[in-house]
Design a protein around this nucleic acid. Structure first.
Lengths: 161, 161
DNA sequence: CAGGATCCCTAAGGATACTG
DNA sequence: CAGTATCCTTAGGGATCCTG
């Protein structure tokens, strides 16, 4: 029996427990479940704020960029903020909200996975201060690094966490 | 100027650097960019291995389950393994590969985000050993916890990392 | 520059029925 | 139980053209 085949198995009786409250992954994917939404969020983290930059860098058409950005604003991951360049009229730029910033670990995890399994890209994330490479990891409140094989899914203990 | 608006901004000159090698997020989303694929992977982590369990628990129709599972096997996140129940003929079950297991942090990150911003679900992940709640975090090789505001995107230094 | 309007194509996904 | 086949609807996304 392969260790890799035993992950979580049999220790997850309450795996239907969220049928009542809704699986958070399903809820998340309902809200930002498209490739273009993920890539627009990536761009937001890379500092892109202007409509046409989003469209160009992500490589989607303007109509797609427009509807995705609108959805991301409605959902609350981005917000519009007025700005004015000298001699120009006031326009809006798209900025990350706190909810949007908090989405970064998901992108980082996906980036890490893609880099490892779908071929290395030419860039990597590093810690500003010390210059060392970043990675995403699972830790418990006690600070232990947790491996995929050491995880249990349980009914939530503290309602307000 | 809102701190939340400054994330990564201006420190990401090489943000087009992967136009050559391909953005890992885009590659990942090309491979598993659908809601049903994410949810099927969730189920695989929860120990589901049988076709009809996948379809039922994820809440998708058999045709959708069939085509997604097939894609996930082709891509390499799942593999088929023969099993036999007493008195039954041999069948296949779907098991996580190493590539599939390595996808867990992405799901955990999405789960964490969804739980925080889209309403708490009734379940949570915990560390088997100590029983404490899990979370996803960003760390550098030096072991520092890294906040979203302290990240730089740079061209990769060590080609074989 | 920042979109909206329109048209078209393809992919995601549900429903039903059928097979080894 | 583990799918396939068929049909249908909707959503994602591209292309082109137009507007404030």
């Amino acid at each position: 029996m392969d260790q890799a085949t035993l992950t979580l198995r049999g220790r997850l009786q309450p795996r239907d427990a969220w049928q009542a409250t809704g699986c958070p992954i399903a809820k998340a994917m309902d809200v930002i479940g498209t490739r273009s939404a993920f890539l627009l969020m990536r761009e937001a983290f890379y500092g892109t704020t202007r409509f046409d930059e989003f469209a160009r860098r992500v490589g989607v058409s303007e109509p797609v960029a427009a509807s995705r950005l609108k959805e991301l604003v409605e959902v609350g991951l981005l917000r519009r903020s007025p700005y004015r360049e000298p001699g120009q009229r006031t326009r809006d730029e798209y900025l990350l909200t706190e909810m949007g910033e908090d989405f970064f670990p998901t992108l980082a995890a996906l980036m890490q996975w893609g880099d490892r399994w779908l071929g290395r890209s030419g860039v990597e994330l590093r810690h500003d201060d010390c210059g060392e490479a970043l990675h995403v990891e699972l830790r418990c409140e006690e600070g232990h690094r947790v491996d995929v094989g050491e995880i249990a899914l349980v009914e939530r203990r503290h309602p307000k966490g």
